[in-house]
Each structure stands twice: as structure tokens, then as C-alpha cells.
Amino acid sequence: MTGPLPALRARAAELDALLARLEADEGSVRADRADATADDEHDPEGSTLSGEWQRIEAIRRAAASERAEVDAALARVDAGTYGICVVCGESIAPARLEARPFATTCIVCAA
């Protein structure tokens, strides 16, 4: 298998695994927050449950956003428009696509 598909599919699988782990982590935090005896706000050694929930949510949002970018790149592969800058219509440099396989713009337009 050549071209962008292996990298995009691998990244999609990594993001799916990360999102599943984050969902499990969020479930644990929810369970801990439901425990009336959990007094995390007074624990000087650890992060608060609220802080942990916010951290998990921020990572989840970033991973979901990147997953959407990967899906869009896969759709561009199917449409035959992968590697074409959406702004100027020129080819995106292979090195840029290697570094960021879901890039939608060439380096010039990205700047």
C-alpha cells in the first residue's frame, strides 16, 4: 500500500484508541465525582477532579478535531484532491504532507 492512506489510517486508529481511553478516563472521573466522600479540593498533593476533568476534555476536543481532519483527508484521497492546496490549487509539498498528512494548504498559503 503506497501513498497517504497508510499514514492516515494509522493516525485514525491511534486517535480512535486515544479517544476510547479518554472516554474511560472521563467515566472514572465521573464516578469519583459522584462519590460524596471524595474531597479532592483539599488534597495538596494531587490535582482536583475538576481539573482532571478539564484536562481530559481539552485533550478529547483536540483529538476529536484531529480525527475530523484525518477523515477529511481520507475523503480528499477518495475524491482525488488529496495533496492539492485548497487556497491556491497548487500541489502541497511531499515533505509537508509527510509531516502533516492531513494538511489542506501548501506552505506558502499556510503562512
Rank of each mutant, 00 (worst) to 15 (best):
T104N: 01
V70E: 00
A75F: 08
D32W: 09
P44K: 00
A64K: 04
L18W: 01
R60Q: 08
A63Y: 08
E69A: 07
E66K: 04
G83K: 05
D43P: 15
R55L: 05
E90R: 15
V70K: 01
G46Y: 03
G27Q: 12
R67H: 06
A36E: 07
A62H: 09
A111G: 15
E26C: 04
L15H: 04
R60N: 03
D71S: 14
L18T: 12
G51C: 11
F102H: 15
Q54A: 05
A63H: 12
I107N: 03
R96V: 03
R96L: 11
E23N: 07
G80C: 10
I59A: 05
A62S: 10
A63M: 02
P4H: 00
P6R: 03
A75S: 09
F102D: 00
E23T: 14
R33E: 05
G46I: 01
A75D: 14
A62I: 03
W53K: 02
A99F: 08
T81H: 13
D39W: 09
A75V: 13
S91N: 13
L8R: 02
V87F: 13
A75Q: 11
F102V: 09
P94F: 04
E69C: 01
D39P: 07
R76G: 00
G3E: 05
I59H: 05
A12T: 06
I59M: 11
A68W: 10
S28Y: 08
W53G: 11
D35F: 04
R55G: 02
R30K: 13
L49Y: 09
D78H: 11
A79Y: 07
E45K: 03
D40R: 04
E98I: 05
R67I: 01
E98R: 15
A64C: 06
V77H: 10
A34S: 14
R76W: 09
P4S: 11
S91A: 15
D35Q: 04
D43Q: 03
R55P: 02
C106I: 12
L8S: 04
C88Q: 15
E52I: 14
G80D: 06
Y82L: 05
I92D: 01
G3M: 02
R60P: 00
V87R: 15
V108G: 01
A103L: 03
A10D: 10
L97Y: 06
S91G: 15
D78M: 09
L74P: 04
A72N: 00
L18M: 08
I59P: 02
P6H: 06
E57H: 07
R30D: 09
A24T: 11
E41I: 12
S28W: 14
M1R: 08
L49T: 14
V70I: 15
A58W: 07
R30N: 14
R11P: 12
L5M: 04
R21Q: 10
A38C: 10
A36D: 02
A12L: 03
S91K: 13
C85S: 13
L5T: 03
R11Q: 13
P6Q: 01
T81A: 14
G46A: 13
